[in-house]
Write a protein that binds this DNA or RNA. Structure first.
Length: 240
DNA sequence: ACATTAATTATGT
DNA sequence: ACATAATTAATGT
């Protein structure tokens, strides 16, 4: 039996991968098949850079598994983590922002799998597939909203409150229930938290140690569990 | 109220 | 054994 030649690097993709994801949930299996046959599937190790800020936006992506981190790097080489993206969401969608270069760098926060399509299909997708445009712009809106909140946070809250806010977002968006609380579902360091909050890894470490003594969190190397989310909410200074 | 510096210890391959 | 991550104390702005 001769090998079938195929464009994908791995076994034929199954329709069920996309069927329940918001951008594609209104489509029938024939349409999903079309889309999958245009897609490339790739696996990335944790910490892999998928594209960099300013690169020509050649493809757009859908994260099937893992977590992405959207990063901006200052001329001085300082990293600022703008956003985390969970599995099931599109990223690298420069066309949705009216751009032909990527506005930020995308790095995997965990081992990940992503589909991607050439950007030239973007307009076809928007025109042809019901619900695709609406859902993607909703996603973009949510991300912009989150970043706006962060700006207010940065300007008005103290470091302890900002870190509490960042951790609350993480457990809401990427939390996984474990015995004694909610664990952040991907490896995360003190350094990462500091890059999300405009702080330093030392301050983060010191605060986490304090919270651990109070039983609010439990942490180890590259992993953090929030045991008492409510206490974090109080510390975050959220408006009641 | 924080960052920075530096020294030390813990942890994972 | 080695590199990376985390802690802790001291000092600086």
């Amino acid at each position: 039996m001769p090998n079938r030649k195929r464009t994908n690097a791995y076994a034929r993709l199954d329709e069920s991968l996309l069927r329940d994801l918001p951008p594609f949930s209104l489509l029938d299996d024939v349409q999903i098949r079309e889309i999958l046959d245009l897609a490339r599937s790739r696996r990335y190790d944790a910490g892999a850079t998928i594209f960099e800020e300013g690169d020509e936006a050649e493809r757009f992506y859908l994260l099937l598994d893992g977590y992405m981190r959207v990063v901006r790097i200052t001329p001085e080489g300082e990293h600022v983590i703008a956003l985390h993206i969970p599995a099931g969401q599109l990223f690298g969608i420069a066309k949705a922002l009216g751009r032909d270069t990527y506005p930020a760098t995308s790095v995997t926060a965990a081992d990940s799998v992503a589909l991607s399509w050439p950007m030239r299909h973007w307009d076809d997708f928007v025109a042809k597939y019901e619900g695709f445009a609406a859902q993607t712009y909703k996603t973009v809106g949510n991300r912009v909203g989150e970043m706006n909140n962060r700006i207010v946070e940065m300007a008005t809250r103290q470091v302890e409150q900002r870190i509490a806010c960042a951790m609350l977002r993480l457990i809401n968006q990427t939390g996984r229930k474990v015995e004694n609380g909610i664990e952040i579902d991907f490896p995360i360091t003190r350094q990462d938290l500091s890059e999300m909050t405009g702080s330093t890894l030392h301050t983060v470490s010191r605060l986490l140690s304090g919270w651990e003594k109070q039983g609010i969190v439990e942490s180890g190397r590259k992993r953090i569990t929030v045991c008492q989310p409510h206490q974090l909410v109080i510390l975050s200074g959220a408006q009641v």
